[in-house]
Computed example of a mutant assay.
Amino acid sequence: MQPGSATPSISRMPAILRRIDPAVATAFGCIVVLLLVGSLYSSSFLSPDYLLQQLQVGAFLAMVATGMMIVILLGQIDLSIPWLMAVGGMMSTAAAGWGPWGDVVAIPFGVLCGLGFGLINGVGVAYLRVPSMIFTLGINAVAQGLMILRTGGSAPQDMATPTMHELATGHLVGPIPNAVWIWVVVGLATVFLLTRTSFGRAVYGIGNQEPAAYLSGIPNQRIVLLAFGLSGALAAFGGVLLAGYSTKAYQGMGDAYLLPAIAAVVLGGTSILGGKGSYLGTTAGVILITLLQSILSVMQIAESGRQIIYGVVILAMLLLYGRSKRTNG
């Protein structure tokens, strides 16, 4: 490029504008549009109480999307999310009935069950070299079968513990729901993990060029194993919170979260091919999907229509941003 062409105009831009990801800016712009559209359907759409309620509901999706983002940054996918959420919810409520210690062990037990399934996913993808789409879909079916076997094919009778219910619906500090504070803590921990640790640098490195990452000394298999373990644990934790919100666990409780989680991640600018993305973008994607779900519910759009919309969104974002990595690489 010759001096004096496009470079000076770019250099004159404020540094903060040069750092903004276009996909993230677009997601936040869409949030503003949805808020305006929603206010046309309901006068209470912009009220603080309603917006806090949407953030509370969005926190459950945020848990799932956080784990999904880490896996997608590797260039992989986790399709076991739906029934790992059910595993977290159903096993935590089952542990609640284990005598006086039930309330104490319920949440850790549910999360550990999800972590176990996630680590199995990691072993299959990292060490057995099975494509993540195939292996995680198989684990999803295994988890479904085990949960149906545990309940005998009927709805479980286990109820959420008071602690689970308080985490999902309570207000410990001011008017902000506890679930939103949990989202903030998980989000800050994820940002630190991805930007300030060797694990985060390895995730981006593997997502950009896996062979080059391996040759540079990154333990690719171990990183993939840990990433899928985190995805499973976070999905199960999302199921725990959802069970607390509903006061009980139920079969298929995570079925409605797979496509929205993927859509939230890609809407936030995370490349579906891996190596590019930020948690700020994922946060914007979660809020955007939550508001979109609310508006579609107000408009009485059927669930099938919502799934079509999520699918179109994913395909559109893939076409817009998914190919840039390959052209640059």
Score class of each variant (00 low, 15 high):
residue 180 V to D: 04
residue 121 N to E: 04
residue 107 I to A: 02
residue 39 S to H: 12
residue 102 G to W: 05
residue 106 A to R: 02
residue 138 G to S: 08
residue 267 L to M: 12
residue 254 G to N: 00
residue 187 G to R: 03
residue 224 V to E: 00
residue 215 L to R: 14
residue 15 A to M: 08
residue 3 P to Y: 11
residue 173 V to C: 03
residue 103 D to E: 15
residue 298 V to F: 02
residue 322 G to L: 13
residue 185 V to C: 02
residue 278 S to L: 13
residue 16 I to G: 05
residue 272 I to E: 06
residue 226 L to M: 15
residue 68 M to G: 09
residue 212 A to R: 06
residue 188 L to C: 12
residue 93 T to C: 13
residue 316 A to I: 05
residue 32 V to H: 06
residue 4 G to C: 10
residue 154 S to R: 11
residue 122 G to D: 11
residue 266 V to N: 12
residue 71 V to E: 01
residue 56 Q to S: 13
residue 215 L to V: 09
residue 15 A to Q: 14
residue 55 L to Y: 09
residue 259 L to I: 08
residue 23 A to Y: 04
residue 212 A to C: 00
residue 306 R to K: 15
residue 131 P to S: 07
residue 33 V to R: 03
residue 306 R to C: 04
residue 134 I to G: 04
residue 133 M to V: 10
residue 2 Q to C: 00
residue 242 L to M: 14
residue 315 L to R: 05
residue 244 G to N: 10
residue 12 R to I: 05
residue 251 Q to D: 08
residue 280 L to W: 04
residue 238 G to L: 03
residue 37 V to L: 15
residue 224 V to N: 03
residue 148 I to N: 09
residue 37 V to C: 15
residue 23 A to K: 09
residue 125 V to A: 01
residue 260 P to V: 06
residue 174 G to L: 05
residue 187 G to K: 05
residue 168 A to Q: 01
residue 100 P to G: 06
residue 275 G to E: 03
residue 108 P to W: 07
residue 58 G to S: 14
residue 38 G to D: 08
residue 153 G to H: 00
residue 108 P to I: 05
residue 160 A to H: 07
residue 191 V to M: 09
residue 69 M to F: 00
residue 270 T to C: 01
residue 216 S to V: 06
residue 296 L to E: 07
residue 145 G to T: 07
residue 14 P to D: 13
residue 219 P to I: 09
residue 297 S to Y: 02
residue 213 A to K: 02
residue 116 G to P: 01
residue 172 L to Q: 07
residue 24 V to N: 03
residue 134 I to Q: 05
residue 78 D to W: 02
residue 303 E to G: 11
residue 35 L to R: 11
residue 17 L to K: 09
residue 19 R to P: 00
residue 286 V to R: 11
residue 274 G to S: 03
residue 245 Y to H: 14
residue 210 E to H: 12
residue 242 L to H: 06
residue 15 A to Y: 04
residue 212 A to V: 03
residue 144 Q to Y: 10
residue 236 A to N: 02
residue 258 L to F: 08
residue 202 A to W: 00
residue 271 S to E: 07
residue 67 G to A: 10
residue 14 P to N: 12
residue 68 M to Y: 03
residue 157 Q to S: 10
residue 295 I to E: 02
residue 323 R to P: 03
residue 123 V to L: 15
residue 293 Q to K: 14
residue 269 G to R: 09
residue 294 S to C: 01
residue 306 R to T: 13
residue 83 W to H: 15
